[in-house]
Design a protein around this nucleic acid. Sequence first.
RNA 1: CGGGGAGUAGCGUAGCCUGGUAACGCGCACGGUUUGGGACCGUGAGAUCGGAGGUUCAAAUCCUCUCUCCCCGACCA
Length: 574
Amino acid sequence: MRWSRIFIPTLRENPATAEATSHRLLLRAGYIRQLTAGVYSYLPLAQRVLLKITDIIREEMNRIGAQEFLLPALNPAEVWKESGRWEVMGENMFRLKDRKGADLCLGMTHEEVFTAIARDEIRSYKQLPQIWYQIQTKFRDEARPKSGILRVREFIMKDSYSFDVDWEGLDKAFEAHREAYCRIYDRCGLKYLVVEASSGAMGGSQSSEFMVISDAGEDWVVFCASCGYAANIEKATSRLADIVDESGPAAPEEFPTPGVRTIEDLTTFPGGASADRQIKTLVYMLDNRPHIVLLRGDHQLNETKLTDATAAKSLRPAHPEEIKSLLGAFPGSLGAVGVDHLPVIADYAIYGRRNMTTGANRDDFHLRGVDVERDIKVTKWADLRNVASGERCLQCNAALNVSKAIEVGHIFKLGTRYSESMGATVLTAEGKEVPIVMGSYGIGVGRIMASAVELYNDEDGICWPVSIAPFEVVITPANFAEPMQQEAAVNLYKELSATGVDVLLDDRDERPGVKFKDADLIGIPFRLTIGKKLKDGKVELFERKTRSSTELDLDVAVRQVRLSLAAAYERSTN
RNA sequence: CGGGGAGUAGCGUAGCCUGGUAACGCGCACGGUUUGGGACCGUGAGAUCGGAGGUUCAAAUCCUCUCUCCCCGACCA
């Protein structure tokens, strides 16, 4: 491909509205353009990257015996009503009506449609197992699209679904996917973690997410560098440092705390207590019924853990007025001592604690000397708190890290949730009718692209891993109008192309500086520079990532480029 | 949905407070000089200032409504 003929609208300045690094660079380097909030056009360079990624995905999916489909993005309401998700998906689903007034939606995911096919066509255990996948556009009406192509309303996803007669079969399909996903992310050159994830309200027994550590991410992951433990913060647990409480009074003592509203306030208030000696009292509406939630003062509630622990379908913090009428005080002076008219869900971290301080359910008053076991009627103990950085790993006792991450993939054991609601069953060898056991597995294709940019960039632009770069090599003659340079450049271009190398020839009538800057910006891994030394039979090979260059004899240049490429591929898969 | 910010030429911005008929840099076109890290000189094209309504002799500027985008939060099988 000649640069003069491919559409690469690079921007000299940073776009004003782009905050995230990947957003800024993909825009500036001419990969993407925004159409509207959360909807992007992929320009030729981006399309080349996406194709490289999807080629890798296809190879690895096919390797585990998966079969590629292409399902409709436009779905009738019926299948979604059958599974019950027409209601569950709520505002996040794009809905529309056709000319006859029938309800339709744009697919957010494809459990329903694939399950409908399985239900209609698969009768016998002999037709199983199956792994079906597609690479297709999904639509989700996100409340807040953000960070360029990281969180969008229309996006490309590889989604696959496994169908088995039994759970052992599902375990195999799940494991096959886990391994395939690792190969895919390895080959794309990403650094990632496989983390335990919350199964959520959708049932199922196990799920893992594939996470790229990045500040641009929206999830938090907890991981242990020494033993490899890794989990989404919605699932992660840790060991806390032991606290020895001295015994307190025989009964809680009320004391005035005028103006104290927060845990922090009480730590500095005379007669108060440090945060880890306080009990934090929250009131939540779980399926519209009030519950008290207790945590140690310095701990944060994780709402997903609360949802998982209570199997609640809906959850929200109670409003101050609701709290006042339930407990007699506003937030800031709440406690669970003596409360027996509301369920109390408490985090394990306050189990057995003594001589604690908490609100008195009387505005501007607190209680000290609270023994949890003696004074509070806990109806349910659960793990509710967010793990914090520096807490100890349960497996090996090393300090845990907590980092932001981009979710690039999610594999999920669904079980029979969809096959049961939609009636997808098979006959077993014994002639018994059983629901098909399913798994569902997703990869965000655009997120792989964005993650690679987040991971590999510098002040000059993007530094793509070779395997997903739009071109592997760019040939840059300092002056293309100069006949010697032109001839050498065109010959190298032809020879490299002939050996299957993806090469871009910068044939533009631009000054060398412009060509170098553009090549760096768009992030081509290798640049063959042809300049003044050509008269001595020399060209230069520049590696984008390391900014190192080596002088090559013209006649070995093709061989050397291919060796360097091979080495770069080798590195990215290790 | 709550809070904050912004819409002026293809891009980045100034002008707005204190109304007087749109400016600068980059990019673009043409001519010339240049050619190893975003060249220089000259000439030129390009904006009814997001939209609608209002105030005024006069509105990018003041008022009202509205649309869109960005950021923080809520939300996110």
